[in-house]
């Protein structure tokens, strides 16, 4: 900041600094939450929960069921944190499911060879999964930022390559020997009645949210998605940031790989096939713009719970599985449609 800005211009008839709004439109927390992009979609979630709650109060609105829902979205939540960053840059990461699988395969293979089933083995496994995840994420980022290949193509490619590597490493056979401590404590352990895996996911989500909304890293993520040229002009090293953001997504896929191993006790090589699309749908439902520049971690989490709650509710009231996919798809389109209109209204100043 230049020194001259600090010196007041006494002759000015302009408004004083105090008349310009410097706090988020409305002071208190409730109003701030109301002003968020994702607030209407939270309303949708509340309505869905209420409808199912009325339809089958004794089964849907039980602690057991709600805990199950939270547990079942935990792994996706970890992936959604990275996906939110990536989509805000106007990118996409289709490879998360495959990177999850290859991370869990590498880590399971090494943990298996260590033979032991204790915490040391589990920590080595976690470290390996994270390293493998970062490798694939950084590779995505490098190809997007430096080689200028569109993210859709890059991550479609690594989706396939990473899964292939997992199959080569295992011969296609799932490894079913995750250390017992992982399965007992992380996969099915509970703290104060809350599944351990959900607590871990919550910590990741909160840290991710702080990083996105409070730090310079997050600010640059928005700037790159909002106007990449302007980000470059003000001296942001956009290429390096993109590599870091995709690496973050890979890192989280590595963590998700270990969590998946803990939860399922197997590497789910043939599974996770729809994980990427489910996570992308959640992030987009939550108000993150596929064109970049806009989105919130809170919204992504709401977006994650909508399909999960719908599925659980539909199963409980006994709706055919085909209607579930129809419902989730419709909500996805409605969410984006409404969001577009809100945005157009905002630009008009409405």
């Amino acid at each position: 900041m230049s020194t001259s800005t600090g010196a007041g211009t006494g002759t000015s008839t302009a408004p004083t600094a105090s008349t310009i709004e410097t706090t988020a439109a409305h002071g208190n927390l409730t109003d701030r939450v109301k002003a968020m992009q994702s607030v209407w979609i939270l309303g949708v979630l509340v309505v869905i929960v209420a409808v199912f709650g009325v339809m089958s109060p004794s089964t849907f609105l039980t602690t057991g069921n709600l805990t199950n829902i939270a547990q079942n979205v935990s792994i996706w939540a970890v992936l959604a944190v990275g996906m939110t960053f990536v989509i805000i840059t106007s990118g996409i990461d289709l490879s998360v499911g495959s990177v999850l699988v290859v991370s869990s395969v590498v880590s399971a293979k090494v943990m298996e060879s260590m033979g032991d089933s204790g915490w040391t083995t589990a920590l080595v496994g976690l470290a390996l999964a994270v390293v493998v995840g970062i490798f694939w994420g950084a590779l995505n980022g490098f190809l997007v930022a430096r080689a200028k290949v569109p993210p859709l193509i890059v991550t479609l490619g690594t989706l396939s390559v990473a899964l292939g590597v997992a199959q080569i490493l295992t011969g296609g056979l799932d490894i079913r020997s995750a250390p017992q401590v992982l399965q007992d404590n992380i996969g099915y352990g509970r703290l104060a009645g809350i599944p351990a895996i959900t607590i871990i996911a919550l910590v990741v989500v909160v840290l991710g949210g702080i990083m996105l909304h409070r730090t310079r890293f997050g600010r640059y993520t928005y700037a790159i998605g909002s106007n990449e040229t302007s980000a470059r002009r003000v001296g942001i090293n956009v290429d390096r940031k993109l590599v870091q953001i995709y690496a973050l997504s890979g890192f989280l896929a590595g963590i998700a790989g270990i969590l998946s191993l803990a939860q399922y006790g197997t590497t789910t090589i043939a599974g996770q096939s729809l994980t990427n699309l489910n996570v992308i749908a959640a992030v987009v439902i939550g108000g993150t713009s596929i064109f970049g520049g806009q989105g919130s971690m809170f919204g992504s989490m709401v977006g994650l719970f909508i399909p999960a709650v719908l599925q659980s509710g539909f199963v409980i009231v006994g709706v055919s599985p085909y209607w579930q996919t129809v419902a989730v798809g419709s909500i996805l389109i409605t969410a984006v449609y409404v969001d577009q209109h809100r945005r157009a209204a905002a630009v008009r100043g409405g």
């Binding site: 900041m1 000015s12 008839t13 302009a14 004083t16 600094a17 310009i20 709004e21 410097t22």
Partner: peptide, 17 residues
Amino acid sequence: RSAQAFTELGSAVRSVV
């Protein structure tokens, strides 16, 4: 500091948020 800068320029910007 942004608000101050706008004030000094007598700008029509009414909110920095």
